[in-house]
């Protein structure tokens, strides 16, 4: 009788290897892969190209409303025929855009102001992006202040609420909503064709 019991007990002991922890291991692997897989979001400077003109001439722009930024192949910057540097572009663009007709050298109003960016054929893309980035940042800073106060620099009210930054305002928009900041304060950046550089 005792022998029979012993036999049974020994059979029960080597019945199964514990597999319950396998689930945890697999879960850990699953979570590890989920966390480490980055779905990379494309970031960049968004621009809209001008449509192809048929025979029409581009609309004339008054000289005072135009801020000409020229960049040559070695990264030297010329703003309205004055030697300048990349770091000065941001301030220069802001004074130009926010002039409201005060200074005769700068723009009449923000919606009239045009920033024209022209490069040499040999200008490296890196420098072009640096300059374009400075121009965009000038506008971004203006947009940020509009989003924070809800008012245009001229004092006109555009937004019902105030936001921490322009980005925060953009994120609060539904896809079908219009960007009121952008609409009331247009950004006119013109990319001129580069010179052949001869």
């Amino acid at each position: 009788m005792a022998g029979l019991l012993d036999k049974r007990r020994s059979k029960r002991e080597d019945a199964e290897t514990p597999t319950s922890s396998m689930a945890d291991i697999a879960f850990l692997l699953l979570i590890f892969f989920l966390v480490t897989t980055t779905i990379n979001v494309d970031t960049g400077i968004g621009m809209t190209l001008p449509p192809q003109l048929e025979q029409e001439e581009p609309p004339p722009v008054q000289e005072r409303n135009l801020l000409r930024v020229l960049v040559n192949a070695s990264g030297e910057v010329l703003i309205d025929d004055n030697m300048s540097s990349v770091n000065q572009i941001r301030e220069e663009v802001k004074t130009h855009v926010l002039n409201y007709g005060e200074n005769a050298d700068y723009s009449d109003s923000p919606s009239d102001a045009v920033i024209s960016l022209k490069t040499d054929a040999q200008t490296p893309y890196r420098i072009y992006i640096d300059v374009l980035d400075e121009i965009q940042m000038a506008y971004r800073e203006i947009y940020n202040s509009i989003a924070r106060s809800g008012n245009l620099p001229s004092g006109e009210s555009v937004l019902d609420e105030t936001y921490e930054s322009y980005e925060a305002y953009r994120e609060s928009l539904e896809p079908e909503d219009d960007d009121l900041v952008r609409e009331s304060f247009p950004r006119n950046i013109s990319i001129a064709e580069p010179d052949s550089g001869n």
């Binding site: 960049g44 040999q122 200008t123 893309y125």
Partner: peptide
């Protein structure tokens, strides 16, 4: 060099794909 970039941009204008992203 900007020359190449501009050539591509002119082609994009011809095609009508005006929304670009650097």
């Amino acid at each position: 060099e900007m020359q190449v970039v501009n050539e591509v941009q002119q082609e994009l204008r011809e095609a009508g794909t005006l929304r670009i992203n650097y």
